[in-house]
Design a protein around this nucleic acid. Structure first.
Lengths: 211, 211, 211, 211
DNA sequence: AATGAATGAGAATTCATTCAT
DNA sequence: AATGAATGAATTCTCATTCAT
């Protein structure tokens, strides 16, 4: 309990710790949280199981680290969008495409975090933070459009972002996890159309797409 | 060994079986699938340990029954909508309200089915069936509006229904499980506005709401 | 945690429980508390190790039961003394002999209780109760002699009983556990002489013994 | 493999070793033998894990050193008594007082040695040596009194010393470990009275007490 | 000498499932 | 049908000890 999870001081220690996290990530991804045995992780990391406890108290602790890493990556992936094209619809399309892809890369683990969040406050926190980043990004975008007179000024930016962002996220889930077979291009296009129309994006920018 | 799924013949048997399902439902709801021990269920049902196996092969079997019951209820709840008012927007609003409420009643268990579906085909099937019912209903509605010239005829009814239905479902989750605090009326109203606009519902029916 | 240690309802259950206690007693006696593995106890009782947990939460719980049984037996053994001969010295001798023998029968376990008492209040309580019985008995005896004018009336009966009783108990320990080789008869005789003289038992009854 | 008992040659080594023994002593005292982990000792001594094994083969070895140190201190404490007053009763009282105090300072550790002695011959040896010193001292004292015609010449000096010494030792235990609340002065006085009378110390020196 | 990472034997405990009554 | 005792596979976790640096 005491010494555990202090960052290792030597290079070797750091390498071992990283190996365990990577091994855990793969194991969780492939087998799901419950199915993973600590020994599975150790075997993957080619480390004795006693070593595991040098770095982590329990499987849950390891998962927390893995989850933090994944969330970090998703944050990173989401940031890029700022150099996007000026056309509002194109920007929305780009954001949706990114969202679907970021999700595709981490779907399984994020689902696991969501599941864990149901019964564990630490994970719930993590999840809420993650969501908040995306919600805020969406809300910002909408507010800018409203200010430019390109979107319905009557919409609550945050709540709208929650709902439309949810549409994308949920579709990603349905698409990837439940096998709703659709071409990415078509999906992104329709998501964008629905999103654009829902916020009342001025016809000039929307017209040509779905018509 | 035996499948043990033959319905019990005596009244006493039927009652015991029903008690186990009810107990299981409560237990799953409160504790989550993994955390529930068969003993918990038996204790709730005031039935001895061994008796469980008179009716179910395993915890999973029991969960399957519980899940089927829940899904059945959600089907039932969804059917009612047909006697709704004629105004399209009002019908959409009514459907959304129903959806949110049906979900509220069963959120935890449906989430559990979703989680189970990730690693178990039987649950995946069940889930897909459930989704299909709602998707088809949504697609039907959209197609009718399109035929009446009230919605954009260029939209793929099924895919659109998947996406917009997903928006509602996902919002329900965010709202209930992740504590996004919003008044039901406001939520339903905004969901409806977004939905209506997204499908290009003719202005006559949409205009006054969010303005 | 919950159901454990409720008395078993069936005869079979009672027999199993008793077998575990008996097996535990033997194991503790032979191996000492720390050295005993739960599986050792189960093997002796010819019971699977899962069964152990049907009846006891932990090794300590089992030990508590064993200790209670031993203490019970020592109580019982100590009670007999009342039908002893009328001569005071003979009575003291008889009590000492009994004490040494009762101790001989249970030395190891009582030592274990003493050790456990150092870090566990429940055992400390048990031990104090046990001591109290013997102390009280000794104090009563002394008080009676004082009233009969046969012993120094200036002695505090309780404290004197604690000390002289301790002499006997400690000798038992030295004799049995540390291998102080002495004939029982000689030991009892000397203990009795010292005890008798210490309380100032009138010479008439003491003189001839140790000479 | 190696015995690792060669005294360290450098000053630094000696200091580390001493720190470990001191740390071990405190740890054993506070937590008891079984509960102490080598890590605890190292942490207290502010020494790394591996260093322990530079000086000691095992926890038991360390304990042996600690025990030897304690026993040494008790020897030392017991020796002082020779410059005591000439009055026999006063000498006995002084010895008892010393005994109680020496014990008070080391009770916990001596108890641990006693416990260890039950299953380990090395500790049994150590303990027997320790006892022997006190027993011999007591027997010598008695023999001298007998030669001076001040004590009952019929008593076996050694066995008597074992028994009466045990009375004091056991009382110390009861007093310190089991919370028999008594004032030290009263305790020493009564122990002395009982002891003096038990050996038949001639009334001249004892007179006022028992009449 | 000192460090701290790595090891793995060993023990406890849980719980789904079987079975005799 | 119901009971509850019995089973044992499966897993987690601890900690003394070794070893490379």
């Amino acid at each position: 309990m005491s010494v555990k999870s202090e960052p290792p001081t030597t290079g070797r220690g750091r390498r071992t710790r990283a190996a365990l996290i990577q091994a855990g990530r793969e194991a969780f991804e492939e087998q799901g949280f419950e199915a993973v045995r600590i020994d599975d992780v150790c075997a993957r990391a080619r480390v004795s199981h006693g070593t595991f406890y040098t770095y982590f108290d329990s499987k849950e602790r390891l998962f927390r680290e893995v989850a933090a890493a994944v969330v970090g990556e998703m944050f990173a992936a989401s940031v890029v969008g700022d150099a996007a094209p000026g056309d509002p619809r194109a920007r929305i399309a780009e954001a949706n495409r990114r969202y679907l892809r970021a999700w595709a890369a981490n779907a399984r683990l994020v689902r696991m975090v969501e599941h864990a969040a149901l019964s564990n406050d630490a994970f719930r926190e993590l999840l809420l933070e993650l969501r908040e980043v995306f919600v805020r990004r969406g809300a910002e975008g909408l507010r800018r459009l409203q200010e430019q007179g390109l979107a319905d000024p009557g919409l609550d930016p945050r709540l709208t972002a929650v709902m439309l962002g949810g549409m994308v996220e949920h579709f990603a889930h349905v698409w990837l996890d439940l096998g709703e077979h659709t071409d990415e291009t078509i999906a992104v296009d329709l998501l964008t159309t629905l999103w654009a129309r829902a916020i009342g994006l001025t016809p000039a920018s929307t017209g040509e797409v779905s018509g």
